[in-house]
């Protein structure tokens, strides 16, 4: 579904991704973990075509993204739904309009009533029935995440990317969010990529893990194999040890 080969990206004269190679099969569930500023968010934004790597290739569903001009990326982006770290809810739109926004762009023929109905249905699925007419500023952190998830998933895109879906949330809400993501994933058989600092919760959700440190891959493989990884950075990070190279 997605194939990166030797991707390298430099931003503001600072190398962010370094010779990164990664294959994601359709329907697989990946977690990206790593210390802060290791390039996790930049990597997923690169997958969406928001950054253009200086070297390497990126194929999404067989289409090479890195050389595609901006207008030609539309079709590839339609295959992806993304929850941003800061939710990225448009604060000039009401909750239902936010959720319906990608749908309206994908299918301009849909009437306002149809869009509202579809958005309402998706909001009910994420447990936010009755919040349709609210503004994003009226929502709590957990509610914003849910709206972000509703927006990311409303088009039933084959690839779903969640950047910190549970950041700043309490354990109960975190658990509910992961239940929701699992449910959505099961129903639509999507390829899922999730970034989270809540390692235990993320590991329960994903099948495979990519460990990034300073833009380099230190581990790539099944979640169960992470414990056996002998890299000192990975060892320290997943066990939360105070002493080590980090």
């Amino acid at each position: 579904m997605i194939r990166c080969a030797s991707l390298s990206l430099t931003l503001s004269h600072r190398p962010v991704l370094h010779e990164l190679s990664w294959d994601l099969a359709a329907g697989s569930v990946w977690g990206i973990i790593g210390p802060p500023a290791s390039g996790k968010s930049v990597l997923v934004k690169t997958l969406c075509g928001l950054f253009t790597p200086q070297r390497g290739t990126l194929h999404v569903d067989g289409v090479e993204m890195t050389r595609l001009p901006e207008p030609a990326r539309v079709d590839v982006r339609r295959k992806m739904g993304m929850l941003f770290q800061n939710n990225a809810l448009f604060d000039f739109l009401r909750v239902w309009e936010n959720v319906a926004f990608p749908l309206a762009r994908q299918d301009p023929e849909l009437s306002r009533e149809e869009l509202a109905a579809r958005a309402g249905e998706r909001l009910r699925a994420v447990g936010l029935a009755g919040s349709e007419e609210k503004w994003p500023s009226e929502l709590s952190g957990g509610m914003k995440k849910r709206v972000g998830i509703a927006r990311a998933t409303i088009c039933n895109a084959p690839v779903l990317i969640y950047d910190e879906p549970t950041a700043g949330l309490d354990p109960v809400t975190t658990s509910k969010i992961y239940d929701l993501l699992t449910d959505l994933r099961t129903r639509h058989a999507s390829t899922v990529i999730a970034i989270s600092s809540d390692i235990p919760a993320l590991r329960r959700f994903v099948e495979n893990v990519l460990f990034l440190h300073q833009g380099r891959v230190l581990y790539r493989g099944p979640e169960a194999g992470l414990e056996a990884c002998e890299d000192p950075v990975v060892y320290q990070f997943i066990r939360g040890l105070g002493e080590g190279p980090l």
């Binding site: 990326r73 539309v74 982006r77 941003f84 990225a88 809810l89 448009f90 604060d91 990608p102 762009r105």
Partner: peptide, 18 residues
């Protein structure tokens, strides 16, 4: 500026909106 900081601009671009 707030839209940039809160990734709303990235959100638009991810939806292929200039």
């Amino acid at each position: 500026g707030t839209m940039v900081v809160t990734e709303q601009i990235d959100g638009l671009r991810a939806l292929s909106i200039d």
